[in-house]
């Protein structure tokens, strides 16, 4: 029978269907070369398990970094003339800069525009309360889910 080395990773990972697995088992019982190959793969497999078990922990900055770039940016408070798309904002920013240069050059004593980018404001109202309750509490992973479930209305809307 043909060697089964091409199936050994899937064999170790439990990914072979039953007929293929039975064929591999039969071959392994007869073929010392494939058994040796399997044994060497098995050692790497065990080393991978050790490496995978090494803990990886999220630093406290992960959520605050994500939040500052997502939910803390309140699109409703971005002035309408900057639009919502990045190119719209960049376009209007360029127009504002050009207008500022024009004013500064043509109208002595004039002042330039005082803001050339979107106003990005952090919503501070709910954030402080949320983070003081469960958002930053990692000691009880189920707490957040319990809190949300308790607060859900019957129609599934948020508290």
């Amino acid at each position: 029978m043909k060697h089964v080395t091409g199936h050994l990773a899937a064999y170790l990972g439990g990914e072979l269907d039953q007929p293929t697995r039975a064929l591999v088992d039969t071959h392994l019982a007869e073929c010392a070369a494939c058994r040796a190959e399997l044994a060497s793969f098995d050692q790497v497999w065990a080393m991978l398990d050790v490496a995978a078990a090494a803990p990886v922990s999220a630093g406290p900055g992960l959520w605050s970094g994500v939040r500052s770039r997502t939910v803390a940016v309140d699109p409703a408070r971005v002035p309408w003339f900057f639009g919502r798309g990045p190119w719209t904002r960049r376009g209007w920013a360029a127009v504002a800069v050009a207008a500022g240069v024009f004013v500064a050059l043509v109208l002595p004593g004039g002042t330039g525009p005082d803001g050339t980018g979107p106003t990005v404001l952090a919503s501070s109202d709910s954030a402080g309360w949320l983070s003081s309750t469960w958002l930053d509490d990692t000691s009880n992973p189920g707490l957040a889910e319990q809190w949300m479930l308790a607060g859900l209305d019957s129609d599934g809307s948020a508290p």
């Binding site: 490496a51 995978a52 990886v56 922990s57 999220a58 992960l62 959520w63 994500v66 939040r67 997502t70 939910v71 709910s126 954030a127 949320l130 958002l135 990692t138 992973p141 957040a144 889910e145 949300m148 948020a158």
Partner: peptide
């Protein structure tokens, strides 16, 4: 779906649920 509606708590829960998996994957 709730994150798409802008619900911070829903998004925070997703991040909390998956941050370790994402970090472990990216770290490896």
């Amino acid at each position: 779906i709730r994150t798409a509606r802008g619900e911070e708590a829903a998004f925070r829960l997703l991040v909390q649920r998956w941050e370790h998996d994402v970090l472990a994957f990216l770290s490896a």
